[in-house]
Design a protein around this nucleic acid. Structure first.
Lengths: 145, 145
DNA sequence: TTTATTGCAAACTCTTTGCAATGTA
DNA sequence: TACATTGCAAAGAGTTTGCAATAAA
């Protein structure tokens, strides 16, 4: 299986774009992060290793990572766009705890199927969907008792 | 059944807030609009009737309408927050056409039920959810053939 | 009379863009 | 060499906020 780096390199050359040390470093930092990272968070991480990298480059690179299929933008309604790993990861939706901000990734094949059906019923061809379930997680429920 | 105006008045007095001509006019304009309206769109509408109303008041009033349960914020990922009627309207999700921007409101009771189940399975108590299905509508499919 | 509201402009947050210098293919 | 990329600072979009004047309860 191709590595994320291969995918990214191939995407760049296909688009006649260039690989640079900044892009290499940002890809690596992104891949080392587990969760849902914002541009600013990634900027703060990368700074520790190379303080010469600018914010704009981080924004630009994350966009590129999303275009190449390495990353996927997710929006938890907290005012910033976040990115999660996409390449090599299955599709999933998110449960978001409104108290502690924790997110859980989950899929329900039946829901996925019914979404397709619902779209079809209205004449739509689905390209993608977003489903966020907001609520209170187990731990926060216990705490507030 | 109470009118939206009653609901809003009651909400205001309960919060020790005041009814003003601006709020009255904005509520009316909002109720007269059918779709999903942004603050700027509502501002442009209200201006025609009373050009002295400021943008900030529109932002502030829409927020108030949402708090009172009259309106509900929806986010179609187009960079602006929109509001739709909530009071007296059943819950629904949205199909969004990525070509023409048209939205269709739809509900699938089975999906709703499975969302609850999925949340429960992960220990969550659901407060609300967002589900947007993005795709291409019938008309746009036909056009691009 | 007390307290909320207004319009205005300035401030704010997140993100994008123009540009001259620099680096990659 | 030709052209993409960089960092920077400035610009942009959408939204919020401080404030003095005004108006509702």
């Amino acid at each position: 299986m191709k590595s994320a780096k291969d995918i990214f390199s191939e995407y760049l050359s296909k688009q006649r774009l260039k690989m640079t040390p900044q892009r290499r470093a940002l890809l690596e930092a992104f891949l080392n992060e587990e969760g849902h990272i914002s541009s600013e968070e990634l900027y703060n991480l990368i700074r520790k290793e190379d303080s010469s990298i600018g914010q704009a480059t981080v924004y630009r690179t994350l966009k590129l990572l999303a275009e190449s299929g390495i990353a996927k933008a997710v929006d938890f309604n907290d005012g910033v766009l976040r990115y999660e790993h996409k390449y090599g990861h299955d599709h999933h939706d998110h449960l978001v705890c409104e108290h502690c901000g924790k997110t859980i990734e989950a899929v329900d094949p039946e829901i996925e199927h019914l979404q397709e059906e619902l779209a079809k019923k209205h004449g739509f061809v689905l390209t993608h969907h977003e489903m966020y379930l907001f609520g209170v997680c187990k731990e926060c429920q216990d705490k507030s008792e």
